[in-house]
Structure formats: structure tokens, C-alpha cells
Design a binder for these strands. Structure first.
Lengths: 181, 181
DNA sequence: ACTTATGTGGATCGCTGATCCGAATAAGCC
DNA sequence: GGCTTATTCGGATCAGCGATCCACATAAGT
């Protein structure tokens, strides 16, 4: 990649990061380009879709969450690992308002740039769930997809200004429903 | 209201109903106007915003759900009433893909045309919850807002094509978390 | 310094919802 | 039935969106 292209790409990612943090993932791509002093076409060549931009922007976070799951798998009790990871996932999405929507859409659209990352994340959660179930610490009538749905739904609550204050408590309520006493 | 205006209004509501059922609440207003053989301006004069259109379209459903809550309050046991109403609410939203988003936004935007209906619905749920709590059948650490958030989140799951198949089961899971044994 | 392959961004397209205002028309009156 | 007037209508227009095209600028390799 040419040096100027690399510089534009990095700069765009940085600007997109702040713009999305401020305004949510639905921020106008034209605005991002303007704030980066770059033409809209340039932004769209580096990141052909909004999903591609978010994929580049969130890749590090995704890997972090997946790694965290792996770490918890050996470092904590099955129930603590699951509860803690669930909480981390929900907390993470609050940084990127609206990202839950895109992830839910990406999970069953193999063409989406975010698809792979979402599937990996879901698999990481499924491992923690299976482990807890094997230990008799989580109910057996849910699977990885259910877990992903519940996490996404709780994250969605965190995205709604009116409901966000309850998100933390409701994570506890749902966690209690997943874990067996 | 003039006869032609009334006719246009009713026709628009009917067309909007099918369009939204087919394509979700984000359907283009221009499309609705086209399908109703009417100018876009006419649609927008009758219903100045998408929320106003949905308010007119969903008013009957809202009243039905509220009435159902009132009826259940006397006709069923506290726990059955709550569980059944929760299920009804979630099932209802599946008819109007995307409506959950708008409701969550309307609940803390007093200017929204949907605001009043959402607040009333939330209050109806809160009454059922309080009754179950008084009977010792529901956990005491949640309130009407939490219940609304949970219902909305479950409805949101039902809106996501990839997660919708799990919605029914997850309603049971969450219901189990709300009710005490 | 020159050539070439790469990157850029203004212009444009089709779409969205919002608004304006001249034309059409229903309702009320004589 | 014919006239007047207040209401309603909808084509035209605007600013915004993401997507695409292509003449131009420029970095990289010789």
C-alpha cells in the first residue's frame, strides 16, 4: 500500500472512532470524511461499506473479548467465567451505540464484513456455556445461539437511552436465569 | 373533515398497514404514497411523521393490549396473568418488524406521537407486576421500567431474523427469572 | 528526471423525508 | 343549478444520504 494511502486509512480510522463514539454507528459517512479532510469517495474506497469500516475499527475489541473468554475458561469457575464474560460483552457494546443492531444483522449475512467476527464471538460464548453446563452450573435448555441472543438483547437495552440505566441490573437478572443454583 | 380527505386518510392507513407488515416499519413513505395512488405530500399532511402514522395504525392494538392487561388482572392468578401478558406483548410486536425500536425511542421522547401509548402500556404491565409481587409470586427487585425493558428486548430478538426462532423459548427463560417459584 | 501504477475527490446518480404553492375540488349559500 | 370560498391535493423542489465514475494528482520504481 502506498504511503499516502496508509496514512489516509489510519487517519480515517481514528476520526471514525471518535465520530462513532460521539454519535453512534449511524453517523453519516460523509461527516466522517469531512472531519478527516478527505473526499467521501476516499473513505468508501478504503472501507466499501459501513460494516467494513466497523470491522476494521472493532477488530481489536473483538479479539480482546474472544481472548478474555479463553482466559476465563481456565482461570475461573465455570459459573463465574460465564457471568463475568457476559457482563464484559454487554459493557463493551455501550461504547459503540447501535453496534448491536449491526452485529445481529451480520450474524446471518455471510457477506457482511462483520460476519466472521460475530460468529467467532458467539462460539467463544458457547464454549463458556457448554463448560458451565457440563459442570451442572448452567441450565441445559439453552445453547450458544440463545446465549448470543440474550447478550445482544441486553446490549440493545444498553443502547436505548431510556432503558440503559437498567441494563446492569437486568444483566444480573438474566445471568441468574442462566445459571443454576 | 372533508369527505375526500377522510377517504384518503383511511385508504392510506390501509395501504400503510400492508406495506409495514410486508417490509417492516422502515418502509419508504414514498412507497406507501405510491401504492395508495396519492402524492407524498398528502401522506405527510395526514401523518406528519412516521411516528404519527404508526400511532394511528397501532392505536387499536395498543388499546387491545392494555385492555388485555386489565382483564387478566381479575381473571387469572397473578403469575399466570403476568406470564401470559408478557407473551402476548412479544407476540404482538412480531407483526410489525422494527416497531420495538420506535417504541423504545418514543418512551423517553415526550414529543413523539407514540409516547402516550407507550407510557400507558408500560403502566399496564407495571400493574400486573406489582400485583404478582404483592402475592409473593414475582421477584421484588424489578419495577415497571425493568419489565418494559425486558419485554422490549425480547421483542427486539423477535425482530432479528437470525434470533427470532429463539424468541419464544427465551420469553420462557426470562419469565422464569421474573416469577418466583 | 521520467514513467507508470496507484490513490484522490469533485461531480453525479437514485434514493430518502420535508416543504412550498399553484391547481383542483368539495361544501355551503343563494 | 350555479357561485364562492375554504380545504385538499400533488408535482416540483430541497438538503441529506450512500454509491459510483473518471479526470487529475502523486508516490514509487527505473
Amino acid at each position: 500500500m502506498r504511503a499516502d494511502a496508509r496514512k489516509n486509512r489510519d487517519h480515517l480510522l481514528a476520526v471514525a472512532g471518535s465520530a462513532i463514539t460521539e454519535q453512534g454507528v449511524d453517523v453519516s459517512l460523509r461527516d466522517i470524511a469531512r472531519r478527516a479532510d478527505v473526499g467521501l469517495a476516499t473513505l468508501l474506497r478504503h472501507f466499501p461499506t459501513r460494516e467494513a469500516l466497523l470491522d476494521a475499527l472493532l477488530r481489536a475489541s473483538f479479539e480482546e473479548l474472544t481472548a478474555k473468554a479463553d482466559e476465563l475458561e481456565t482461570a475461573s469457575s465455570p459459573e463465574d467465567a460465564l457471568a463475568s464474560w457476559l457482563r464484559d460483552c454487554v459493557a463493551w457494546t455501550t461504547e459503540y451505540r447501535g453496534v448491536t443492531e449491526l452485529m445481529a444483522a451480520a450474524i446471518d449475512d455471510a457477506e457482511s464484513a462483520l460476519h466472521a467476527a460475530c460468529v467467532t464471538l458467539r462460539a467463544a460464548g458457547a464454549r463458556l456455556l457448554t463448560r458451565a453446563q457440563s459442570a451442572g452450573r448452567a441450565r441445559d435448555d439453552i445453547d450458544g445461539v440463545d446465549l448470543f441472543a440474550l447478550i445482544a438483547a441486553l446490549a440493545w437495552i444498553g443502547d436505548q437511552p431510556s432503558l440503559a440505566p437498567r441494563a446492569g441490573h437486568l444483566v444480573d437478572v438474566v445471568t441468574g436465569a442462566i445459571l443454576t443454583k
